[in-house]
Amino acid sequence: MTPAVSFDAVTIRLPTSDGGALTVATNLSLDIAEGHFVAIVGPSGCGKSTLLNLAAGLLFAPEGKVRIFGDELGGINQHAAYLFQQDALLPWRTIIDNVLLGPLIRGRSHAEAEPEARHWLQRVGLAGFEMQFPHQLSGGMRKRAALAQSWIVDPRILLMDEPFSALDVQTRQIMETELLGLWAETRKTVLFVTHDLEEAIALADEVVVLSARPARIKGVYPVDLPRPRDVAEIRMIPEFNTLYNKIWADLRVEVGAAAHG
């Protein structure tokens, strides 16, 4: 089967503040199978987010290819939605106007898109907050709205860049569980970047560990934990711990290398 996302020997270079270029990864290859929830972990600065931006088409690799369902990516990825780490709702649009922006951009009328947006807001538990502006909502609620905004366009691939890292622990676990709930209904392909190994194991089918710069694939670990999962409870089962220790043994070397290099 054609992978949903395929990185084929990509090189990632980022411009530095002094005008040079920093090589973040060379010759990196990775396939993401369709319908899989894949978490990418690695030490900070190893290029996890950059990898996601490549898959989104927001960045381009100077060498190597990114393929989406077999087609080489030449612009913005048409099949993907992106959930950002930072707040990305338009602050001057109400919550419902933010959610229906995707359909609006795709040429639907405001009136057509509105019931659907209401439906999505209900699904993420934001019914009644349609006419609020983003700043009037809590951080967790803004994330819910952002989820609705990205899911309403029914993307085949979801790219998530540490989406819940700014939330407090409780809110975060609730959001993770809800994300899994939504995901279970549709089984979209998910690329989830995080620096939190527990979060990665709790959510994903597969955990990809990246090495310190220059990033290589250090290991790919299948997560054979039962679904549906409750992210708070799954941390208690022994298999979770075994897996955690196994991956952490790999990851800690890289985190150490990143911290000292």
Binding site: L58, I76, A80, A81, Y82, L90, V153
Partner: peptide, 12 residues
Amino acid sequence: VLLNNVRMLQAS
């Protein structure tokens, strides 16, 4: 970030 978000929603 706002710009990238709206670009990902396929805005021209």
